[in-house]
Design a protein around this nucleic acid. Structure first.
Length: 268
DNA sequence: AACGTCAACTCGTTTC
DNA sequence: GAAACGAGTTGACGTT
């Protein structure tokens, strides 16, 4: 198939040269991976913009990224909805996993364990059940973002915390964007290849036309244009090279063709 | 052991 | 200023 159907989004393709890698940060809406640039000062760039991008809160670039000490263990969510930051090292990880033998589906309890002092333990990485994932995917199909009410509703339905639903949607959007970027990248590669081929073809065609022109032109037409001048009245070709400057327009006259609009008698 | 996936994190930015 | 988001990161876990 042709690559016309590879991506049906409205892509704006821009080919150009970057003088430095910093220019790429100016429009970083699609740059999910930070890959080191080569040492070249000038390199070809492909700039892609999606005209139907819904993200109208674009920012110039994300400097430095996050970092963070990372998750991994579940932590108690504070009453206000934020995340607590109790010591991970102090947490005795207690994992409760229930394995359903019939379909090997893993089911994890969503309730948190409590210590003697009533604090809630973290636990090892949660894997959402297939049913939960399916429901989340279904919701994501309808809208990739959730309002607070939808979030609450979904969390209740899934027996998850709203924060977990929120995180899932954030990660899901990130995955979607990454996947789309990969698709776009493939599309642009194909575009680039096609343009290269077209460029080569046109170059060849140009060479052929030049060769054809040379073989069919009279001898004087094959001289460099800068060395030839033409008498405006008699249309004779003259050589203006230094050797011939003293005797311009001495070459053989143009074959006389009848021209009702010129008066050849007044020439030169 | 290496690698991939993914939930959950931090941080900076944007929007209201 | 709070909430929401994107980008980048972390670490547990599953797979090869």
């Amino acid at each position: 198939m042709g690559f016309d159907g590879v991506c049906n989004k409205n892509l704006v393709l821009e080919l150009g040269l970057n003088s430095s890698s910093s220019s790429m940060a100016e429009n970083n809406s699609i740059n999910p991976t930070k890959k080191p640039c080569s040492g070249l000062n000038f390199e070809p760039s492909l700039t892609l913009a999606l005209s139907d991008d819904h993200d109208h809160r674009k920012k110039p670039t994300c400097v430095g990224g996050g970092g963070g000490s990372g998750g991994g263990l579940y932590r108690q969510e504070s009453v206000s909805g934020g995340c607590s930051s109790f010591s991970v090292a102090s947490v005795s990880v207690k994992r409760e996993r229930e394995v359903k033998s019939e379909d090997s589906e893993r089911v994890h309890e969503q309730e948190l364990d409590e210590n003697d002092d009533g604090t809630v333990n973290g636990r090892k990485k949660l894997r959402l059940t297939k049913a939960q994932s399916a429901l989340l995917e279904d919701a994501f199909k309808h809208h990739s973002t959730l309002n607070p009410k939808q979030k609450q509703e979904l969390a209740r339905e899934l027996k998850l915390r709203p924060r977990q639903v929120e995180v899932w949607f954030q990660n899901r959007r990130a995955r979607t964007k990454l996947k789309q970027t990969e698709v776009d990248c493939e599309y642009l590669k194909k575009c680039c290849e096609a343009l290269k081929e077209e460029n080569n073809r046109l170059h060849k065609e140009l060479q052929e036309l030049k060769a054809l022109k040379l073989s069919t032109q009279p001898l004087y037409m094959q001289l460099p244009a800068a060395t030839l001048t033409m008498c405006p009245s008699c249309e004779r070709i003259g050589d203006t090279t230094s050797a011939a400057k003293s005797r311009p327009f001495t070459m053989a006259p143009k074959p006389h063709l009848f021209n009702p609009f010129t008066n050849s008698s007044a020439a030169c």
